[in-house]
Amino acid sequence: MSKPSSSSPPISRTVEAEPTIDVHAHVLLPAVEEAVAGHPGLAKARNLDARRNGPTALAVSGPMVAERIPLLTDAGARLAAMDKAGVDIQLVSPSPSHYHYWAHEDLAVHVCRLANVGTADHCAQAPERLRGLGLVPLQHPGLAPGLLDHALGLGLAGVEISSHAPRADGMRTVELSDPRLEPFWSRAEETGAVLFLHPFGCTLDERLDEWYLSNSVGQPTENAVAISHLIFSGVLDRHPGLKLVAAHGGGYLPTHMGRADHAWRSRPDARAGCAHEPSSYLRRLYFDSLVHDADSLRHLVRAAGADRVLLGSDFPFDMGTDDPVAALWKAELDEADFHAIRGTNAAGLLGTPTAVRAVPLPPDRS
């Protein structure tokens, strides 16, 4: 079987295949920001975010987001960009800046309901092409199952979560291994909800406040820590049916599972929480393809399996890609794996209709 080429050359052939599905795309919801405006916790959270990112990064990020407001808020602009990129369906999640995990219970419920309704309304403008995810308040684990149900009741596919949240008492973080999240994992498993793990903010704080290390190092670090909590605590043993998608290819973890496996084999404290070698759990999770490097994507496919990788772009932010299919071509996967990642895997995960379409491929190199 021929392989796609390492770039995106002139097209010479097409195949009939399932739709191209991008599972990592965002929407901005002004109503959420209006709801939190003026709350003391917002100023504190923004101050922490500023310290973590540093002034140079903030000076770049502000104008970058501003120029992308139409793509983040206008469904017509989104659809035009999707057409240009050859993307048929997007799974749209709120911008992680909407988490507001500092909020008290009443405000947190209000924020999540607004995010759920806002995302559902945005996707309803093109329901055949846009699927959505809502939010739950990780800082209040007891509220998460009910707000997951709220999101699902609006027709959303599931919810987006971060890698951790501050505890309501301010003493320490709520990790994804927190026992109080067990009812949430149970409800997500029972309903078949999609959970999109997308970090926002790295607890290394000012150590990453230059050169945009807060994102380039911080995001993959947070992914690795969060997934490790899920694995080593036994969450994935207790809830094998979870449909959890890790953004950014799961961060550093898939490329460093040998060390985790060695710890599990060598130390009783590392082995206490999970039943199997940590690397085996990668095949119980899903990962988006946004790793920015062909070698890294090939390694992710080897580690997790081609059936566990989904196309992702981080639309429309500058740390994403404008052409996720071309990035997938560069990995030179065989055609079955290419199409699985391009759309088949996500169609199965989302229950998306599998109507075929003509998909351009690079010239046959056989």
Rank of each mutant, 00 (worst) to 15 (best):
K3L: 12
P10L: 13
S12N: 05
R13P: 02
T14S: 13
E18Q: 03
T20C: 15
T20H: 12
I21T: 09
D22W: 11
E34R: 09
G38T: 11
A45W: 13
L48F: 10
R52K: 08
G54I: 06
L58E: 14
V60N: 09
V65T: 15
P70E: 07
T73H: 03
D74Y: 01
L79W: 05
A81L: 00
V87F: 05
D88H: 07
D88P: 07
V92D: 04
S93L: 01
S97Y: 12
H100F: 13
H100T: 05
L107S: 07
V111G: 04
N116T: 03
H122Y: 15
A126Y: 06
R129A: 09
L133S: 13
L135R: 06
L143N: 08
D149M: 06
S163D: 06
L195P: 01
H198C: 08
L204I: 00
D205A: 12
R207M: 12
L208A: 06
D209Y: 04
S214A: 15
A224T: 03
V225N: 07
A226P: 05
S228C: 11
L230H: 11
S233H: 11
S233M: 09
G234E: 07
K243E: 07
K243P: 00
G249N: 02
G250D: 05
L253V: 06
W264N: 02
W264R: 01
P268A: 09
A270Y: 10
A270W: 01
A270L: 11
P278D: 04
Y281E: 03
Y286L: 02
V291N: 00
D295C: 13
L300A: 05
A303K: 10
G305E: 08
L310N: 02
L311R: 03
F315E: 01
P316R: 04
K330T: 10
A331K: 10
E332A: 12
A340L: 08
R342V: 00
L350E: 07
P353V: 09
A358W: 03
